[in-house]
């Protein structure tokens, strides 16, 4: 029983990171129907910005995270403007290919500039303490990751539900043309979406750095893929779906490694994804809207 609770704790902080990345995926998808494969690499850039802000500027972890979020928000806007906007009226698969291109570009530009070796997140930024609560080992970094992830999700929910920008985002996502008629600037709204999504990814990147101690230019590929899986699992384009999907994937991986066979961990989480899709083809939270004829 104790081991199970420990495993659940393990799964929650892993899931929180997946969920944060998945949110960005899902927001972008919801608004322009683009699978932004470069999203995991934006997370990587966020981690490196956080790293340099700690090592070069000597900031603390909170400031580093804010700087990373700001830089990546800008990066997201630029990527959208340069690489995706010209393709907005083309087939979606064309923008998928530019997304792959942007992903490779971010990865190998970072390798070119900084080398492929991992960089060590300075431990001065965050002193790890372990708490022993009823036989469970809970680390303050677990708490840090979980609390800041949930905090960011709440902020996001607030923005989307109660601000004008959020309303505009929902409107564009629901019906692009109607939104234009209502006087909403679609370009601006899409830029904002990219900015917010990329900022969340950057936050996740800094968390990965703090949590696992090391970052490298190719670190975005696998979490990016898993977060994509999480987003689809929850129903892509649906924000609560991405959160739930992230936690589901995190917990699932933990439980498979803990109680099943760790050798098949990835196969099992992919398998569960397929099973869920077969039962509910639009993901857990997806609405079956029926097809427009």
């Amino acid at each position: 029983m104790q081991e199970l609770i420990q495993q659940l704790v393990n799964g929650l902080s892993l899931g929180a990171i997946y969920a944060l990345i998945a949110l960005g995926y899902t927001m972008v998808y919801g608004i322009i129907k683009l699978i932004n494969f470069a999203h995991g690499d934006v997370m990587m850039v966020g981690a490196f910005v956080g790293f340099f802000s700690i090592t070069l500027l000597g900031t603390n972890i909170a400031v580093a995270m804010l700087i990373a979020m700001a830089v990546c928000a800008l990066l997201g806007v630029i990527i959208e403007k340069v690489a995706y906007r010209p393709l907005r009226n083309s087939t979606r698969i064309a923008s998928l290919i530019t997304a792959i291109g942007v992903s490779l570009l971010l990865e190998y530009l970072t390798i070119f500039l900084l080398g492929p070796n991992q960089k060590i997140f300075p431990d001065t930024a965050f002193t790890v303490k372990a708490y022993d609560i009823a036989g469970l080992s809970i680390l303050n970094k677990d708490v840090f990751v979980f609390v800041s992830a949930v905090g960011l999700m709440l902020v996001l929910q607030y923005i989307i539900k109660y601000t004008k920008t959020g309303k505009a985002m929902r409107a564009v996502s629901l019906d692009n043309e109607a939104a234009i008629l209502m006087g909403i600037s679609v370009d601006k709204t899409i830029s904002t979406t990219f900015a917010i999504g990329s900022a969340l990814a950057a936050a996740a990147g800094v968390m990965v750095g703090v949590y696992y101690g090391a970052i490298n230019p190719l670190m975005g590929i696998i979490p990016g893929l898993k977060a994509f899986v999480a987003a689809v699992l929850g129903g892509i384009g649906i924000i609560p779906g991405a959160m739930v999907g992230g936690f589901v994937i995190g917990l699932l991986e933990t439980l498979v490694s803990g109680y099943g066979n760790s050798l098949y961990r990835d196969a099992v989480s992919f398998g569960v994804l397929i099973l869920i899709l077969l039962v509910k083809p639009t993901g857990l939270f997806g609405k079956d809207t029926g097809e427009k004829v």
Binding site: A83, P86, L87, A94, S95, I97, T98, I100, G101, V102, S103, L104, L105, E107, Y108, L109, I111, F112
Partner: peptide, 14 residues
């Protein structure tokens, strides 16, 4: 090589 490859991909698609 990978940087050039990525740029070609993006430019051709745009």
């Amino acid at each position: 090589r990978m940087i050039i490859y990525a740029l070609i991909l993006i430019v051709v698609m745009i």
